[in-house]
Design a protein around this nucleic acid. Sequence first.
RNA 1: GCGCCAGUAGCUCAAUUGGAUAGAGCAUCAGACUUCGGAUCUGAGGGCUAGGGGUUCGACUCCUCUCUGGCGCACCA
Length: 565
Amino acid sequence: MQIKATLNQLFSRALEHLEIPSASVSVVEAGKPEFGDYQFNGAMALAKQLGKAPRQIAQEIVEALPAHPMIAKTEIAGPGFVNIHLDAGWLATALQSAVADARLGVGRKEEPIRAVVDYSSPNMAKEMHVGHLRSTIIGDSLANLLSFLGDDVIRQNHIGDWGTQFGMLIAYLEELGEGAEGSLHDLENFYKAAKKRFDEDAAFADKSREYVVKLQGGDVRCLELWDDFIDKSLGHCEEVYRKLHVNLSREHVRAESSYNEELAQIVEALKEKGLLVESRGAKVVFVEGDENPLIVQKSDGGYLYATTDLAAIRFRAQELGAKRISYVVDARQAGHFKQVFTVARMAGFVDEEVRLEHVSFGMMLDKNGRPFKTRDGGTVKLIDLLDEAVERAKGAITQREAYSDEELEKIAEIVGIGAVKYADLSIHRESNYIFDWDRMLSLEGNTSLYQQYAYARIRSILRKYGREPEGELRLEDELQRRMALKLLQLEDVLHAAAREAMPHYITGYLYDLSTLFMKFYETHPILRDDVSEALRQSRLLLAQATAKTLSLALELLGIKVLERL
RNA sequence: GCGCCAGUAGCUCAAUUGGAUAGAGCAUCAGACUUCGGAUCUGAGGGCUAGGGGUUCGACUCCUCUCUGGCGCACCA
């Protein structure tokens, strides 16, 4: 149910009827309950243009507003606000049909587009570390969301599998000979060991450089070793994705190296467009307003990640036919993407109508506001962080004695991983965020555990009742009216979150919803004997709608729910 | 030096993109249990939205300057 869009349409019609050019019709949720459910604030802005008093304009708009069962009444308040009160009967009916629907009444986009979401993008030379966490979590939820709303989503894991350090790694792999695969188990140490050899042994360093050249020249033996290495490294990433409940697998991998063949063409295309300039021996493209150009080919003839990014962007726009390409990459890359996007458009790799966006996010900081590191200052391995989340979650489960070890493990995994993801998704992605175990595993406040607890409470009631609720949904009071409205706003919230790639809109919504439910739960008994059958059915339906909404929205965020905690 | 981003309650964060009296949680204080799961709920205090100036009916939001912090600035990705 798209409430806002419906209201906007009605107001547009009213403005058309009054022959007012409907410039910026925008109905927003009312700030306070006494102002109704929604408000239209356009009258004040139109006052000057029309030379009339804003309240007068508001009056005319209200009179021209087409009748709709959704609207109970409108009233003009203050300087010219139009307050809109939705009809309780309509809310009840609409919610009743939404609960019965598998998608909770959320439609699919009428004009779906193909959308590419580029996220995670780990470097194959090392193990995944906390620096990959936010991209992976935010990107996955964005992909889930767009897909649910009907877009044709292509996930792209642009893994870093090419570059000079691979010569070193392959040289080391060969040096260890057969049976070296075991040492790949700990990629981090493998990298360190190779680096040590590289720094300490000149002959090994030379051999490494030689291997880079051989690899890039297509030497079969080198490619075999490289393939093997990437395979192992990717296997490690898959383990992380599995633990993180992230929907990325090999089919989504589109590695940097896969664009190798096209890099020369990219430079050639830029040249043909007359964009290419030689500067200090390198081939570059200057972008207006930027002192430094985008370098696409080094003075030694080598290509850079800007070149690869251009090749990828062209592939996505032209081969995949994407109309929206989202890069979920940290904010430090803002300058880079701005240049790449501009050059891609100048070169005609992407049309005007294609939306290119850098879904940027801030850094992950520790409790003291410093970059997140281990005690000795090293990078934190992602796999260790996730394991710790699960361990800590066990401690947060108060009734852990009631479960077998196996059950506890399963619950702790869902709680722990959910906490890590929710903590990330619930803050404005552009800001840096403080990673704090105690807060994210708390049951109080805007946390995953609070939502999971609300869900488990409802499931407990429904389990006890044992049947499917049936009957009429009736909104008895203001609290239930607000719950119904909140539940029906799901689609509006999902659309806003998808449009702006802002998952925290969803978590904020869920928190509102579960706090409303908790209040309802405290004051409205459901299964108690003194509750009439009609009321019981109605309250069961409301609780069920809440549970389904929590479960659906959390699933889009990549977070699971539990029947019991 | 140039550029980008941020600064909101003691702390951690919101504020539907210019709307009415800036909202939550933690912490503090005060309440509610013969519990449909109290791991909850109710209430109170706490703000010159870093600071100045401007734009307009109306500014946390837009423009401008200052201060503070973070990050990026040619051949790494």
